[in-house]
């Protein structure tokens, strides 16, 4: 474990807690894409299948349970909670996210490190995580401006990915054989998707005005 990865995990944890607290306290999910949350639930479900078969540390197992629990809670809140689901922006959140799932599954069947059930699903979760934010970014573009909690959510997610890249650089230089192209490339693609959002987010902070994303 290194400081970059710990900071990355904490930033990731903060992002899901910000979202969960927002939805739980103000009982609203306005501006949040249910499609992105569903994709993240699938990402965690397919990535943490090894939670029962391999144990790395208390920290690792605990964090997996937290991410699984929070992502599924957010989806259930948005879909079924009597008050929250009314604030879900169904008409605007129209990204056909199932069109992302199939290509990621096919790609995982083609490109993976080992052709085993767990490994292919784990690789699928990497590819899916890379594109899971797309429905949320599209929704932000559509609704033009965003409330600052959703902005903070996306900002923290981007920060977690950036810190993970620093973690991979650190591990590459400190651990022999630490070469994982699949993880690195999908992680890089994911981080680049946040790049333009970061630009507009930083602009809105600098000019201290409401975040307006270009159409």
């Amino acid at each position: 474990m290194n400081i970059f990865r710990l900071a990355g995990d904490m930033t990731h944890l903060a992002s899901v807690l910000v979202l969960l607290l927002k939805i739980h306290t103000i009982k609203s999910c306005a501006g949040v894409s249910l499609k992105t949350q569903e994709l993240y639930a699938i990402v965690f479900a397919t990535r943490y299948l090894d939670i029962f078969t391999s144990f790395y540390s208390i920290y690792n197992t605990l964090m997996k349970l937290v991410f699984l629990g929070s992502s599924f809670s957010i989806v259930l809140y948005m879909k079924y909670h009597k008050t929250v689901h009314r604030s879900y922006d169904r008409e605007q959140d129209t990204f056909r996210h199932w069109f992302l799932v199939l290509p990621c599954l096919l790609l995982a069947l083609l490109i993976h490190e080992k052709f085993t059930f767990l490994e292919v699903l784990w690789t699928f979760s990497l590819y899916l995580e890379a594109v899971a934010i797309l429905p949320q970014l599209v929704l932000l573009q559509r609704t033009r401006n965003i409330d600052n909690l959703t902005g903070q959510y996306v900002f923290l997610l981007g920060g977690y990915r950036g810190l993970y890249i620093l973690n991979w650089i650190y591990r590459y230089f400190t651990e022999p054989h630490f070469v994982h192209w699949i993880t690195w490339i999908s992680g890089l693609v994911q981080t680049l998707l946040y790049a333009d959002f970061f630009f507009y987010y930083s602009q809105s902070w600098k000019n201290n005005k409401k975040l307006q994303l270009p159409a």
Partner: peptide
């Protein structure tokens, strides 16, 4: 052994 060391990441 080496490919396992990425699985300890979240």
């Amino acid at each position: 052994e080496h490919e396992e060391n990425i699985k300890d990441e979240l």
